[in-house]
C-alpha cells in the first residue's frame, strides 16, 4: 500500500531590521522571540542574525535619513524571494514621525512590502499573527492562520478604534488631538464624512478621551494585520448627515442625544424637540420660551 506522507513545512528564518524606531516594536519582538507562549516556534519560525539566511524580513521604524543606506544594503542581502513584514505604523505610514526633515518613510516607497501589522506598538500576539500570515504567503498560501480567539485580550485593550456617526457632532476635537494625523473630516453634500485610517493610528486613544459625545471608542480588536494590497482600505468611516432646521430650514448637523444630555442633563420630549433646531433657533427656543419660529 502506498502511503502519502506530507513533509513538515520547512523552517522559515526571520531577519529584523530597525530603521530608526522608538524601540517599542523591537522590545516586543524580543519578547516574542524569547517567550514560547507566543508560539513562533510552533509555526516553524526562528530568528537569524544572518540576512543571507533569511526568508522573511521584519521591519520596524519610520526609516530615518541616516539609516537609509545601511537599511537598504542589509535588505538587499536577504535573498529573493523574500516576504517583507512591516511592524507598527511607523514603517507603514511614517506614524507619529511623518513629515519630519529626518524621516523618509513610508517604507513601501523603497522596497516591496507584503504584510502590514499596524499598532503602536502592536501586541506580540498581533505580531505573531502578522508573521504567520507572511509565512503563509511564503508557502504559497498554505499553513495555519492564527485565530485571534486563541489570545484573549484584557477588557481595557486599546485596539482598533470604532466610530459611531450617530453620536458625532463634527466638532473635530479628535482630529485636533490626533498625533498620528489619522483622522480626516470632509464636507460633503450629504453631510460631514469622517475617516480614520488604522495604518496611521497610534492606539493612544486621545480621540476617544477628548470626544465630548462618545462617538469614538477603542475596541479590544487587536489583530489588524493585513496584506499590503489592503493598506489603504483599513479605515473606519461614517457620515454625519445634514438635516434642515425644523424651524428655519438652514442645513445643519443634528444635535446628538449625548450632547443634549450634557447640555440639558436629561432627554425629555421637550428637549428632544431641540435636536432638530439650528443653534440660533435652539437658543431662541430654549431661552426665550417662544413657541413659534420667528425667523
Amino acid at each position: 500500500m502506498h502511503t502519502c506522507k506530507v513533509p513538515p513545512a520547512p523552517k522559515l528564518r526571520l531577519y529584523r531590521i530597525n530603521t530608526g524606531s522608538c524601540n517599542g516594536c523591537d522590545v516586543e519582538l524580543a519578547a516574542t522571540e524569547a517567550l514560547t507562549r507566543f508560539g513562533l516556534e510552533r509555526l516553524g519560525l526562528s530568528f537569524t542574525a544572518d540576512p543571507t539566511q533569511a526568508d522573511l524580513v521584519l521591519i520596524t521604524g519610520p526609516l530615518t535619513v541616516r539609516s537609509k543606506g545601511k537599511v537598504l544594503a542589509e535588505y538587499a542581502q536577504v535573498p529573493d524571494p523574500k516576504i517583507t513584514v512591516l511592524i507598527g505604523v511607523c514603517p507603514i505610514s511614517g506614524g507619529a514621525f511623518r513629515d519630519s526633515y529626518a524621516v523618509l518613510g513610508p517604507l513601501d516607497e523603497f522596497l516591496a512590502a507584503d504584510v502590514n501589522i499596524p499598532g503602536c506598538p502592536p501586541r506580540p500576539e498581533a505580531i505573531v499573527a502578522g508573521i504567520a500570515e507572511a509565512a503563509r504567503l511564503w508557502r504559497g498560501g498554505e499553513g495555519p492562520q492564527l485565530a485571534p480567539a486563541g489570545f484573549p485580550a484584557p477588557a481595557n485593550l486599546r485596539g482598533r478604534m470604532s466610530y459611531r456617526a450617530e453620536a458625532c457632532v463634527g466638532c473635530r476635537m479628535c482630529q485636533h488631538v490626533c498625533a498620528g494625523g489619522a483622522i480626516r473630516f470632509e464636507e460633503q453634500e450629504a453631510g460631514v464624512s469622517f475617516t480614520l485610517w488604522h495604518n496611521s493610528c497610534l492606539f493612544c486613544g486621545m480621540c476617544s478621551h477628548y470626544c465630548p459625545t462618545g462617538a469614538l471608542t477603542p475596541t479590544g480588536e487587536w489583530n489588524l494585520a493585513h496584506p499590503q494590497a489592503q493598506k489603504y482600505q483599513m479605515v473606519e468611516q461614517g457620515v454625519v448627515p445634514r438635516i434642515s432646521c425644523s424651524c428655519c430650514g438652514v442645513p445643519m448637523l443634528p444635535v446628538v442625544p449625548e450632547l443634549m444630555r450634557k447640555g440639558y442633563r436629561a432627554l425629555t420630549r421637550e428637549t428632544a424637540q431641540l435636536q432638530t433646531l439650528c443653534s440660533e433657533c435652539r437658543q431662541v427656543r430654549s431661552i426665550g420660551g417662544l413657541q413659534r419660529c420667528t425667523k
Binding site: G61, V65, R66, S100, C120, V177, A179, C204, Y210
Partner: peptide, 26 residues
C-alpha cells in the same frame, strides 16, 4: 544619529495635545 527623527522640530509643529502622544513615542 541613526534614530534621529527630528522630534524636537516636530514638536513645534504639533499642538500640546498631540505632543503628549508624540513624546510618548520618543
Amino acid at each position: 544619529g541613526q534614530v534621529h527623527r527630528g522630534m524636537e522640530h516636530l514638536t513645534l509643529k504639533r499642538n500640546f495635545y498631540q505632543n503628549i502622544t508624540l513624546l510618548e513615542r520618543l
